[in-house]
Nucleic acid binder design. Structure first.
Length: 297
DNA sequence: AAGCCGGGGAG
DNA sequence: CTCCCAGGCTT
């Protein structure tokens, strides 16, 4: 639909790298010497959770479980409590399975090959490339929500990121400089996180504003068609909220809890039962011989 | 391609 | 209140 814009991307690369050098956030996992396990952990924790909330938990985990082998021996209950309120606790369970696979099939070492990484539980298209790139320095395209948004705007001249798609990989791959790929990808993500933000981009602070296709086009607002595709997920009143409330009870309980302690978290019997059942099905909760509920051992 | 899966903080 | 966040998995 939108007319293709010709952008002189190569000239933007050094500009972006210079900006990154000046504005990079000092995230804990960016410190030199961070292990591949540390990178993997940071990426999984950051899936759908802002990095500001991730950092303190990441530090705890790295101290407690410094490598995959140490973590692989933890119990699901321990892991879910340590995960706390990072959200989507299934991610924590998959991380445990992931570490166990790393131990059993990769000799306890986080693989550096994208396909090997993709085969790990909880590791998808983004995370696999992020680990290959940021942990091992491989020059592979890393495409997250930030990169998609920045490329859509700066290169294609459109405002919204739209739905994630593998088809965006080649486009980003074409932008990757032969040198400094990891640095470049990190800079692109950082620009999206700090400047080229989702709803209110700070174009006045953007190092690419002179070359940005969206700015050049007059900063057109998102089209009605683009807005219609957005559809933000509800949270209040959904099963996700009820599941979260139940998990909060289980995490905080010293001993297995009776049904009555779960019943008080939500008034709707049908929805509450559905949520509890789904947690059991997901392996996020279990029932002991006495019928009490607890985190999985 | 669309729906589901937590929770918090900014606007 | 709505929106978003270094996504992944299932259908």
């Amino acid at each position: 639909m939108g007319m293709p814009m010709i952008v002189d991307w190569p000239t933007m690369v050094p500009t972006l790298l210079t900006w990154f050098h000046l504005h990079e956030r000092p995230l804990a996992w960016r410190e030199p010497g961070t292990s591949a396990w540390g990178i993997l952990l940071s990426e999984v924790m950051s899936q759908q959770t802002p990095v500001s909330r991730v950092e303190p938990v990441w530090r705890e985990w790295m101290e407690r479980w410094p490598d995959p082998a140490a973590f692989a021996q933890a119990s699901p209950a321990e892991v879910l409590r340590a995960w706390g309120k990072l959200g989507y606790p299934r991610r924590a369970l998959r991380l445990l399975e992931c570490a166990q696979v790393i131990v059993s099939r990769h000799d306890g070492r986080v693989p550096d090959d994208v396909d090997d990484l993709l085969a790990l539980p909880g590791v998808g298209d983004y995370t696999a490339r992020a680990v290959a790139c940021f942990a091992y320095g491989h020059n592979v395209p890393v495409v997250d929500t930030n990169v998609r948004r920045v490329v859509r705007r700066a290169v294609e001249g459109r405002f919204l990121a739209g739905t994630a798609s593998k088809s965006e990989l080649p486009a980003v791959a074409g932008l990757l400089p032969a040198e400094d790929g990891p640095r470049f990808s990190a800079a692109l993500m950082e620009l999206g996180a700090l400047v080229c933000t989702a709803t209110s981009p700070r174009c006045g602070e953007c190092p690419l504003r002179k070359e940005c296709a969206w700015v050049a086009a007059g900063s057109p607002p998102p089209t009605a068609e683009e807005l219609a595709k957005k559809k933000v997920q509800k949270f209040a009143g959904t099963d996700r909220q009820v599941r979260g409330l139940i998990m909060d009870v289980l995490r905080g309980a010293e001993a297995p809890v009776p049904q009555s302690e779960i019943d008080v978290v939500w008034p709707d019997d049908v929805q509450r039962s559905r949520a509890l059942f789904s947690l059991l099905a997901d392996g996020l909760a279990e029932q002991d011989d006495a019928g009490l509920f607890r985190l999985p051992r």
